[in-house]
Amino acid sequence: MILIPCPHCGPRNASEFAWKGEHRPRPDPARASPAEWRSYLYHRANPCGWTTEVWFHRAGCRRYVTVERHTLTNEVRRAVPAGGER
């Protein structure tokens, strides 16, 4: 079981959350070229190690959470309220 320490609800099983993928800055839709936009849509760092990602607490507070997780061990070391546009 993977525990995610939701900043709003406390530690909860990851199965309560929906994984939304790596946290990445979105290019300005008005100015991005099609290639830049597609790269944003499709390409991922997909690291084997620590990564910052967004999870949605769908069976809890229904808020977005930014989580630091190790992709090999699934250890979670930090979860904070997601800021920005999401």
Binding site: M1, W19, E22, N46, T51, T71, L72, T73, N74
Partner: peptide, 13 residues
């Protein structure tokens, strides 16, 4: 599994 991972451990879920 519904998230990215390189872990090959099985889960009870």
């Amino acid at each position: 599994d519904p998230f990215a991972s390189y872990s090959m451990r099985g889960s009870l879920e």
